[in-house]
């Protein structure tokens, strides 16, 4: 059951990325290029996603648990620490270099452009390295 739900929700999420234009790195990089060929579309992606999620989460949290699990699994960390800021800063640099964040990178795999086919394994390697690194800090 969970597999079917996740497959369909991944598909919905991915279709949203494709329709919104966020699956196209050129559009992402133009959004980030305030001083050049600025394309404000991505602000509308963010806006649409956050408004729907903000309202939808409030409806979801009216119940004391999700439909198919015993409890909501929400992040426990509350404090802003150096790891959060350093990680986010590095993430933004990579996002600005390639125009891909993780969701759009997976969406693009099947379109099989050489840049995507090296980006995704490098991203997974980076994830693995960060987990090792974070374990050492802890």
């Amino acid at each position: 059951m969970s597999v079917v739900i996740n497959l369909l929700l991944g598909l919905l999420f991915g279709v949203g990325l494709v329709i919104s234009g966020m699956g196209n790195p050129a559009k992402v990089l133009n959004f980030l290029d305030l001083a050049g060929t600025w394309d404000p579309s991505l602000a509308f992606v963010m806006g649409g996603a956050v408004v729907v999620t903000f309202v939808g989460y409030r409806l979801a949290f009216r119940r004391d648990r999700p439909l198919f699990d015993a409890a909501f699994h929400l992040p426990a960390k509350k404090d802003v620490d150096r790891q959060l800021v350093t990680g986010a800063a590095l993430f933004g640099i990579g996002w600005g270099l390639g125009g891909f964040c993780p969701g759009p990178a997976f969406v693009a795999i099947g379109l099989a452009q050489p840049g995507t086919l090296v980006f995704v394994p490098a991203m997974l390697l980076g994830m693995w390295a960060a987990r090792r690194f974070a374990q050492k800090l802890a």
């Binding site: 990680g87 933004g92 990178a105 490098a122 980076g126």
Partner: peptide, 12 residues
């Protein structure tokens, strides 16, 4: 870019 995105996202 891929390495930075993966590393930064998990660290952050």
């Amino acid at each position: 870019a891929g390495f930075l995105v993966g590393f930064g996202a998990v660290l952050g």
